[in-house]
Every structure is written in C-alpha cells, then in structure tokens.
Design a protein around this nucleic acid. Sequence first.
DNA 1: CGTCTATTTGAATGTACTCAAAAGCGGTGG
DNA 2: CCACCGCTTTTGAGTACATTCAAATAGACG
Lengths: 188, 188
Amino acid sequence: MYQLILSNVAKHISLTEEEELFFLSLLKLKTIKRKEFLLKEGGVSRYQTFVAKGCLRTYTIDDMGKEHIVMFSPEDWWSGDMYSFITGKPAAYTIDALVKTDIIQISKNNLEKLYEKIPKFERFFRMLFQNAFVIYQNRITSNLSQKANERHKQFIKTYPGLEQKIAQKYIASFLGVTPEFYSAMKQK
Amino acid sequence: MYQLILSNVAKHISLTEEEELFFLSLLKLKTIKRKEFLLKEGGVSRYQTFVAKGCLRTYTIDDMGKEHIVMFSPEDWWSGDMYSFITGKPAAYTIDALVKTDIIQISKNNLEKLYEKIPKFERFFRMLFQNAFVIYQNRITSNLSQKANERHKQFIKTYPGLEQKIAQKYIASFLGVTPEFYSAMKQK
DNA sequence: CGTCTATTTGAATGTACTCAAAAGCGGTGG
DNA sequence: CCACCGCTTTTGAGTACATTCAAATAGACG
C-alpha cells in the first residue's frame, strides 16, 4: 500500500529512507465506499488524495441536474480540487468513489511540514499541479476539436484498462454523451 | 498606458511609488499588428503579457486544420501560455492579435528580479496563475453542460463589449460552432 | 472603386439527444 | 440456491442541434 505511493513519488524526486519514513508519518489511510463523497462542490478541498486501489471521479452537476465527469482517478493517480486546495476557496467540483477505494491523504498542514523538512517535495507537488493544468488543457482541446468516438479513443489511452472496471454510464458522462449514444457508438 | 497596468496590479497588491517605478522599469512595450504572432504552438512562452489596448486570442489548431479559440485577452487582461511559461516546456497554444494591439510584457528573468526585490509580486502572479486555472475550469464545465446559445450568453458576460470589437467568426470559434451556425443562432 | 474577406441564406446531412420499453446483470433475502 | 429487485445496458423511433457545401450579399480596407 505504501509502496505504491513511494514509487509514485520516486517518479519525480528521490528520497532517502529516513525521508520516506517522515513522509509516510504525515499520511492518513482511508477506505471509502462506492458512492461515498470525498468532496462536495462548494466545500473546501483540504487534502491531496492518492488512490492506492479503486477509482474516484471528479465531476460537476449542471442546472438540469446532470453530472459531467471531468476526470477519473484510478489506482496510482492523485485527486483533489487543485484550485480549492491552493486557494482555500470553494471547490467547483464534487468527488466521490465509483467503487470501494483505498486512498492515502495528506492534509494542507502536513504538507507545509513536509515542505519545511524536505523542500524537494515542493517540486513534487508543483509538478502535480502542473499535471492538473495539462489535464485541463487536454480536456478543453479534445472537447473543442473531437467527436465522441475520437474522444473515446483518447479516453482509452489516458486510462488503460479502466473501461473494464467501471460502469459505462460513467464513461459516457466523461465523453460528454448520453449512455444510450455511447452504447450505440461502441458497436462499431 | 502604464496607468492601466498599475491599476490592474493594484487590484491585488498595493505598491509604493518607488516600487511602481521599479516594476515599470522591468517592462517592455510593444505594438503588434493584426494577425501577428506572439507565440506559436510548440514554442516556449517566455513572457507574461498584459494587453493595454486591442485584443489577443489563444487557440489550438486541430488535425483538420481548424482553429479553436480557448480564450480572448482584450484590454486589461493578461495573456500567455501559463503552463509553458512556468515549466519552460513547449506551449500547447498559439497566440496572435485579432486587431492592432498594444501590449506590455515582462520576461521570466525580469519577473525573478521583481520577486526578489518586491516579494509581494509573487502573490500577484500566483493569483494570475490561479485565475488561469479558473478560466480553464469554466471552459470545461460550459463545454460539457451547455448548448451553444447558453455559451454565447456566458461569453457576453465574460467579455462585455467584445462582441462589437472583433469579427464574429472568432466568436463562433470560441463558442465551438461554425460561423454559419453562429450567424443563424444570433437571429433570435 | 474594386477586391478580398466576412456574413447570410438555404438545402441536405450528420451527430447526438429524448423518451419509452425491453433485456441483462448483480446482489440480497428467504 | 433461487427468485426477485433495482440498476445498467440495449434497442428503436422520433426529434433537436449543429455541420457541410454552395451561392448570394454585405462590409472593410487599401
């Protein structure tokens, strides 16, 4: 469980054993059930969340009450409303679990402690933030320039294997089409 | 000209006269012609750009060669590919001028000098970055959940008065529809 | 004033949605 | 272990939103 987050961190910065232990001491493990909320729109995102197992979704609810999934966070991904976390302002998005999910969280306070003791973590979280930015950019670009079937191909590349693990109505929501249309689209 | 950027800064941080002068000494004025490029996709964004007069557009070009406008930067807005500026990596977007445009730029180097001498500017540019994030979030949400006519209403709110100043094919591109459809849509 | 580009108009087409109903699937309780 | 319930997926018909292509009209600028 901890091994996964350590190797995730190791992708960007390298830690001594001592540093690893300090890092782990600041983390909180949690298991959340299917449909349980991690964050609701309008609330404040106080944690950065790493997914060890399972899958989270980040989404908005429009005026008609329809849900629109902005991103998934399967195993080995991070989640959280970056904007809300950084600014302390209300989140634009809601986050919940699509299946029973094991997560590892670090609070904003503990993150400050971490930065103080191991400054290279600033680099790590700056990169997380930048990645979030790229994800948003890609989302905008693909929504503007691609049809649903092309977005579907991109979804498969972005989230390999995820298609098998979650209900397809969620994939439809991510692609921005109705479940009915998605079902029909798949047949080709 | 300088007054505009000073009052823009004053929205977030307050400066002494001396600080204002130092800030201004780091800036570079420029006028760019209609259709002139400020940044091309794949290049690196080395400046943050403030628009004193005129209007810039930030856009992508898809596989079919079609342009999709992600944001406008009219008078009193900032422009630049935030991601590229921060990371030094290639920009995802192209930026050019829709009309003759007066801009004020600060280079990455000068920005570092500014931070060193007047640390509160870190706060200012952090807020610019956060605003860019919000703009992206809104763009994603409205693309996912709104029809073209609703996005049009939102466009008018976001950019008051801009509709009169630029060719409507650009507005169509921003809304994600063809010029023909936009033309028809307006008639109501 | 003429040229070039932008806008409008219209017809045919494509992409995606709504609504309704049937079929499939998974978990739970008896 | 089976039957049932609730939710998801499929299917189909009818409709709405948006695109393409072509041609006519209007506007802007040198």
